[in-house]
Design a protein around this nucleic acid. Structure first.
Length: 419
RNA sequence: GCCGGUGUGGCAGAACGGUAAAUGCCUUCGCCUGCAAAGCGAAUGUCUGGGGGUUCGACUCCACCCACCGGCGCCA
């Protein structure tokens, strides 16, 4: 398989550190609010990547962190008058619920920041011992000047920037926080540098080091994390013992946009996953997301979702009886997936497989994409269909048409047989 | 300002430098149908943001320009 890595800005063949095993880390959510379709886009992409790799026989350890200690959580908990842990647990649960509702179930292990405080403190301590981090009255900071490869991921070397996070005790305004001393409510811990809480970037490297070691295969996340978050992760991890590269494949998903703008909480143009699921089922949402390449921007519109729903319905409608394997169609699908997870092309192959009646492939590949391409029938619906057919046979069209109207309104596809 | 990304038919969105630029939706016509829908068949439609370069040949490579989007130290 080939993947585009932000680090090299090229498509490279996937060569893992251990043959047949893939260590994948994806930045998880900050659990202070409901997740929206932008998050869905990213997590569907990595869900499919993982399922595909597993389908090819790889053993994938997919690790995802849960950021449950953060300014937003502190502020939101204060606003709502509940404890930080209570808020974090609530939205963590909601996150899992949304993910499962979207059929995202490939993650091997979720790791909370707050349950890895010892690992975080240990890593910060080692960075200080290394001489790349220093202690001030306000906390512990990473000295970006100590890291010669600073900026290699984002192409930004820092010379033209000014940090928005001002702290008089920092040696360089661009130095970032590893530990913030102070009292932050429930989420405050003792450390060799005083009571406080972790900085943002350190949880990921502490967690990934614990489960993967200092080097692993793939790190994923949204495009917006490249700088500064992933840049900081590289600096932290590679400064521990100088192992380079921390990860070879940096995968970043493109933004879901609304009227050309990034969907985000701050712009207020977001649609939560659960709201979207009120109108569209999970398979339509997945189909819609996979209809574009994971690195491309994707426009979220009702029209686009409606098209996806129709397209998926079309596949299901034409996939009639099994006509055996369509080798060419299968090859097209696999080639597409191999080529940097080209799901739009893979779905074109699915169209073809459906048209050619390769139901085996539809079922198998549908499991990878998390979409059932075969027509679903349930007992109640079958009964309803039978009743309608009987009415039509007796030429009682008025009643039959009322049933049809109601079914269509409920989003149920009906297919009449000629009388 | 610096860095990064995107720009393909009405819409969404693909294309190892090489036959007619996938696929789906939409539109039109025909078949089918109790009437529709679905399905089937057919048709219209882009010469790929712009003007250059490299090449026998470029959506695809190079430089530049334009437009839009994003990041710039706690956004997936």
């Amino acid at each position: 398989m080939e993947l585009y890595s932000t680090l090299s800005r090229t498509i490279e063949p996937l060569e893992t550190l251990h043959p047949d095993r893939v260590y994948l880390f994806v930045c998880g959510p900050t659990v202070y609010d409901y997740s929206h379709l932008g998050h869905a886009r990213t997590y569907v992409a990595f869900d499919v990547l993982t399922k595909y790799l597993r389908w090819t026989g790889k053993e994938v350890f997919y690790l995802q962190n849960i950021t449950d200690v953060d300014d937003k959580i502190i502020n939101r908990a204060a606003e709502e008058g509940i404890s930080q842990p209570a808020l974090a647990r609530k939205f963590e649960t909601e996150y899992f619920r949304d993910m499962l509702a979207l059929g995202i179930d490939a993650v091997s292990y979720y790791a909370r920041a707050t349950t890895h405080i010892p690992e975080i403190i240990d890593q910060v301590g080692r960075l200080i011992a290394r001489g790349v981090a220093y202690v001030t009255e306000t906390g512990v900071y990473f000295n970006v000047d100590s890291f010669e490869r600073n900026g290699e991921l984002s192409g930004q070397d820092g010379t033209n920037r000014v940090s928005r996070v001002t702290d008089a005790t920092k040696q360089n305004p661009l130095d970032f926080s590893l530990w913030k001393t102070g009292e932050y409510g429930e989420y405050t811990w003792d450390s060799p540098w005083g009571r406080g809480r972790p900085g943002w970037h350190i949880e990921d490297t502490a967690i990934s080091e614990k489960y993967f070691g200092q080097q692993y295969d793939i790190h994923g996340g949204g495009l917006d994390l490249i700088f500064p978050h992933h840049e900081a992760e590289i600096a932290q991890m590679e400064s521990l013992e100088g192992k380079h590269p921390m990860v070879r494949y940096w995968l970043h998903t493109g933004f879901l946009t609304v009227k050309g703008e990034k969907m985000s909480k701050s712009l207020g143009n977001f649609i939560t996953i659960r709201d979207a699921l009120k109108t569209w089922n999970k398979e339509v949402l997945r189909y819609f997301i996979l209809l574009s390449h994971y690195r491309s921007p994707l426009q979220a519109t009702d029209e686009g979702l409606a098209n996806a729903a129709k397209g998926l319905g079309h596949i299901r409608a034409i996939a009639g009886k099994d006509k055996g394997p369509d080798e060419e169609g299968r090859k097209t699908f696999i080639d597409a997936m191999e080529a940097d997870l080209n799901t739009p092309m893979a779905l074109a192959a699915i169209q073809r497989l459906a048209a050619n009646g390769d139901l085996g492939a539809l079922k198998e590949y549908g499991a990878i994409l998390g979409i059932n391409f075969l027509q679903e029938t349930s007992a109640p619906l079958s009964v309803l269909h039978e009743i309608r057919e009987e009415l039509r046979a007796k030429k009682q069209f008025e009643v039959a048409d009322i049933i049809r109207e109601k079914m269509v309104a409920a989003g149920i596809t009906i297919t009449d047989q000629p009388l």
